[in-house]
Write a protein that binds this DNA or RNA. Structure first.
Length: 733
DNA sequence: GGCAATAGGCTTTTT
DNA sequence: GCCTATTGCC
């Protein structure tokens, strides 16, 4: 171990080495993209162990993704295989583990299940139905998000009620306390709970907090800029005793503000810990100089950031190519063309490429073309595997077997596959349970006592009860693997899907097979496999975690997903106003800065070459829209950019379809369209208008025709608003 | 209670 | 354009 440490120490630059050796007291490491952040973290742990400052189980290292945690674990294994007992994991998995141990103190049993966004929404819907809040007026998802935001910001149901400003918040304030109540009844936690409940646990039980404070002599936090208020408090609490806290992050890569992440946590670390040591890692080992110049030129436009400048000892490298295309199909073609060129010219292979985009929906056009060209690709993200309906159905069975109190899962499967227990019956049973303060599962067990359910249906219910009961008793006798296979077989899922030869059912059957394989894999890899541990793993996994760089394929994913990864060649597609930066960020400077950081993250994924592309016309939802190039393209250091002119278009052809569609056209860049247009209409892009209330402005987009015609006007005062032309009473200037 | 047809919502990003 | 949830009919 000593040898390998010495060898590797030579690989650290002076700043990295200082950050590794400064083990005592609070330490803040600003680690720019590609500056060897993971290396510093792992060496630091290895160094602490080597100096025998702590035992492995006294070191806690927290990350945001399983992938990052796994990489850290892997690298540390190189230093010695006794390091298995280190506490390395995601925030959520670490605290899920602690919650299992301390569940009793919270009125939970250790078999609790973890609800994902879908379960959460179902529960909220149930509450809305029960409390008579009309689903039509309030969207359960917005309510779920609102509650999530409150929890991340440590706003309790009580304080939420105290700060109501809108009717919507009033509705949320009625649901929020009941939601927490039902979670407890269902013996379930949601994602936010995994962070906020430990905090409550610690504040209500100081002796428990002290136990963990004493245990964790050294605490490390990765991607500190992504912590939210709750996570920050949790870290702060745990580190208070030994004060050996090392946080590593990069404010320029903070891209999860919308999820409650608070950059202030990293920017104000020195305020929270006045005696902290600060290190800045600014040498980038990943990218060419050109790439860093371009990336810096973009992120410098942000006001809220710590001054720093990444540099590289590498060569200048190639310029960034900006590609302008006619529509998203041509964009895809160009990307494919460039990949072919790179493969041919530079002898690159598919795994060298990543195609990034802002929204998952953009992947389709790219996929179509890649498939046509016979190039292998993998999509990371999108519809997550464990969130697919057929998988969630099986998971719901498993959750019930582990925790019969979980009424959300119970309702999901009570009549799936169809067994003659319909909605009205379920409602009767719920009502019966509610009146007696029992769980829904109790109604099922004691179905004979519910006399207003016909005998025939009672029989169906008691069959269902026997089925679940059988697996509950099997749970301790056979492995999760055998149990799941028997279950899938008994409820006839595979036969059900296979019977129908439609593509979607075939792919469902395929997914179930994949799921069964995942269970086997879990059983093989775990020391003491249990159903409940498997469920936890599944709940906390993401698709990036499953991304493996071994297969030789082009990677497609969102910019968010790409964080922490690197590729020789990066494509960032859809560089258009309204898409990137996404339209919702336009009127909020902080959101816009976050978009810019996201762009920065994308750019710094590249080792050698960057292609940026945008399309003049793009299909979104079901309509075509004309587009303007992203403002970010203007922010690139022009000396490092090479603009590729679109193919000379001899005739801009518009099919009759183009005129039938309801399109948004932006005219400044499309004089061609004007000459083809049969409509003489003063309300088009670029027209300056005056509005009674808002003053003077310019039309920036148009949609719809006739009476439905709407325009978006950007006013000189700064704001932007959409109007129905019919009612707006504009004065044309 | 079951099933097929239709309406409606959505697309920013995720542990 | 897709997926899901709801509706209306059997």
């Amino acid at each position: 171990m000593k040898d390998s440490l010495n060898t590797l120490f030579r690989e650290l630059n002076p700043e990295q080495q200082k950050a590794v050796e400064e083990t005592e007291g609070p330490v803040l490491v600003f680690a720019g993209a590609g500056s060897g952040k993971t290396r510093v973290l792992t060496y630091r742990i290895a160094f602490i162990l080597k100096e025998q400052k702590a035992s492995p189980w006294e070191i806690l290292a927290m990350t945001f993704t399983n992938k990052a945690a796994g990489e850290m674990k892997n690298r540390i294994q190189h230093f010695g295989d006794k390091n298995k007992n280190l506490w390395i994991g995601t925030f959520h998995s670490i605290f899920a583990k602690i919650l299992r141990w301390e569940a009793g103190l919270l009125g939970y049993s250790p078999d609790f299940v973890i609800y994902d966004a879908d379960d959460k929404e179902r529960l909220i819907k149930t509450i809305m139905e029960d409390t008579g809040i009309p689903l039509q007026n309030y969207n359960p998802r917005s309510i779920s998000e609102s509650i999530g935001r409150a929890k991340n910001g440590l706003v309790s149901p009580e304080s939420f009620i105290a700060s109501i400003n809108t009717p919507f918040q009033e509705v949320v304030s009625r649901i929020y306390p009941e939601y927490q109540n039902r979670l407890r009844i269902n013996n379930a936690f949601d994602f936010e709970d995994l962070i906020t409940v430990p905090l409550r646990l610690f504040s209500e039980n100081p002796e428990v907090l002290e136990k963990y404070q004493r245990r964790f002599k050294y605490i490390l936090v990765d991607e500190y800029q992504d912590t939210n208020k709750a996570q920050y408090r949790l870290v702060y609490q745990l580190a208070k005793k030994h004060r050996n806290l090392c946080v590593v992050g990069d404010d320029d890569q903070s891209i999860y503000r919308w999820r409650g992440a608070d950059v202030r946590n990293i920017l104000e670390f020195e305020k929270d810990f006045p005696d902290s040591k600060v290190f800045k890692l600014e040498q980038n080992y990943r990218s060419t100089q050109t790439i860093l110049i371009v990336a810096n030129s973009v992120v410098e436009k942000n006001a809220a950031r710590k001054a720093k400048k990444l540099w590289s000892a590498k060569e200048m490298g190639e310029k960034v190519d900006v590609i302008e295309t006619a529509d998203e199909r041509e964009e895809a073609q160009k990307v494919v063309e460039k990949i072919k060129e790179e493969v041919f010219r530079k002898k690159r292979t598919f795994r060298d490429f990543a195609i990034l985009y802002r929204t998952n929906a953009q992947s389709r056009a790219l996929e179509d073309d890649l498939r046509r060209s016979g190039m292998s690709y993998i999509i990371v993200g999108g519809v997550r595997f464990y969130e697919r309906k057929e998988i969630k159905d099986i998971l719901a069975y498993l959750k019930i077997i582990v925790n019969t109190k979980d009424s959300v899962s119970l309702k999901r499967i009570i009549n799936f596959p169809l067994r003659g227990i319909g909605d009205s019956t379920t409602q009767k049973m719920e009502q019966w349970a509610l009146e007696r303060g029992l769980h829904l599962f109790e109604s099922i067990r004691r179905i004979k006592e519910i006399t207003d359910i016909p005998l025939r249906i009672q029989k169906n219910i008691s069959n269902f009860y026997d089925l679940i009961q059988k697996y509950i008793s099997l749970k301790s006798k056979i492995s999760p693997n055998e149990l799941v296979r028997t279950l899938v077989d008994e409820i006839g899922l595979m036969t059900m899907y296979k019977q129908d030869p439609s593509i979607e059912n075939q792919s469902r059957a395929e997914n179930i097979r994949e799921f069964l394989a995942a269970v086997s894999e879990y059983v093989d890899s775990s020391e003491s496999p249990s159903l409940s541990e498997f469920l936890e793993q599944v709940s906390l996994i993401t698709d990036v975690d499953a991304w493996d760089d071994k297969s030789n394929a082009i990677t497609l994913m969102t910019l968010h997903c790409a964080k922490g990864l690197e590729f020789p060649v990066i494509f960032i597609t859809g560089m258009e106003e309204g898409l990137f930066p996404i339209s919702r960020s336009e009127d909020e400077p902080e959101a816009l800065e976050e978009e810019r950081r996201l762009f920065y993250v994308g750019l710094t994924r590249a080792k050698e070459k960057i292609y940026l592309s945008w399309a003049e016309k793009r299909r979104l939802f079901n309509e075509s829209y004309f587009r303007l190039p992203s403002r970010f393209l203007d922010e690139l250091d022009s000396s490092c950019v090479h603009k590729m002119k679109p193919h000379p278009r001899k005739h801009v052809k518009f099919t009759s379809n183009d005129f039938k569609q309801e399109v948004t056209y932006t005219c400044d860049t499309h004089p061609d369209y004007e000459s083809y247009s049969q409509e003489v209409d003063p309300y088009r892009c670029g027209t300056r208008v005056h509005h009674q209330t808002f003053g003077k402005g310019k039309i920036v987009s148009v949609e719809g025709k006739g009476k439905k015609k709407k325009v978006v006007v950007r006013f000189d005062s700064g704001g932007q608003k959409k109007f129905l032309v019919q009612y707006a009473q504009f004065e044309i200037l």
